[in-house]
Amino acid sequence: MTVAQELESYLKTRDAHKIKSVTPIAALELVVGKRVLEVEGVVVGSVAVDGAQSILLEVEPGRSIVVALGEEHGWLTRGQLRIRAIVAVERESELVTPTYRLLDAAFASTVAKWEARQRALQHAKAQAQAPPQKPAASRPPTRSTSLNSRANSTARPPQRPNPAPDWETFRLNLRLYVPEYAQFIRSRNPRLSQQEADQIAWAILRFSAHYGVDPRFIVAIVLVESGFNPDATSRKGAAGLGQLMPSTARGLGVVDPYDPIQNLHGTVKLVRGHLERYWAQTGDPNGWEHVVLTLAAYNAGSGAVRKHGGVPPYRETQNYVRKVIRVYKQLCGIRE
């Protein structure tokens, strides 16, 4: 089946069940009875019992559901894939675990592109029927104790035309950001396939939302660290997108640092930890001092920052901090 045929089949199944959007995880967990819903997630494993296959679908960091497959969906067991899935959910009562059976599936990136085209058509139609308006400034919102108040607009990309008004809305609409983040990532590493770029973009957005970190900050770090090369290895042994050292990776629970999803989860988790430490130390979550110290600790270690009472006098670390800050400001649309 071609990608176009796969998408057509998926959309027909979605229309047949009158599904308009992905079901939020919180709502998924409240289902009692029989429902057909749309979910999005990453296939992180599979199992076969007596010839019946199932996949483990991670719908958010640290939370997965087991979905039973039919024979026609065996392709989902071939590796880590980010998918949209139409699932039949059954749950007798709130006291029992729900069961999930796959009705149809497609690559998340394929569905996201189709949805983006539909939004573009609707936007063009609306613009043709109404006088043009000055577009609102756009920047992904951040949690109150995160990297906020950076600028009133972001440099393209990453960015999307209609900004979310608050953090929770941003979290619920992460998939809308994926195409532009993926486009930016591929522009920096053209060797990545579209699927790989989509996977990296989704992981950055998902983990950033989960840990309350500005995704543009993570983009800047990964760009400087590895140039978005999942196979990058430094002379000192740092590995993967976020260039995690082996001991650091183990401490973060990263089994395979060359796996983009595992690496980015560890990277964002580590960055969040540093941010919390240094904004508590500086007392100003909206300033730049804790951002600078976070980068210094990411590069040289928090011990070195503590020993020198700030950014260590290492040329590599000082250049690293300046470079990431410069990229981050460019992504935020801040002119120096």
Rank of each mutant, 00 (worst) to 15 (best):
M1F: 11
M1R: 12
M1T: 09
T2F: 12
L7E: 00
E8G: 08
Y10S: 02
H17G: 01
T23N: 03
E29I: 01
K34V: 15
V36M: 06
V36K: 10
V59R: 11
G62R: 11
G70T: 04
R82G: 06
R82Q: 13
R84E: 12
A85M: 04
E90N: 09
E115N: 12
E115Q: 15
E115L: 14
E115F: 05
R119A: 09
A120G: 12
A124R: 10
K134W: 11
A137N: 14
P140E: 06
S144Y: 11
S144M: 09
T145S: 09
S149W: 14
S153K: 10
T154S: 15
T154H: 13
F170Y: 15
L172K: 13
A182I: 02
S187K: 14
R188E: 09
A197N: 00
D198Q: 06
D214W: 02
R216S: 07
L223N: 06
S226K: 03
G227Y: 03
D231N: 15
A232Y: 02
A238G: 03
A238L: 04
L241P: 00
L244I: 09
P246D: 06
T248S: 12
G251S: 04
G253D: 10
I261C: 07
H265G: 14
H274Y: 15
Y278N: 01
G283P: 07
E289H: 10
H290A: 13
H290L: 03
V291E: 05
L293R: 07
A297T: 00
R306F: 06
G310C: 05
Q318L: 05
N319M: 11
V324K: 00
R326D: 11
K329R: 14
K329A: 10
C332L: 13
I334K: 06
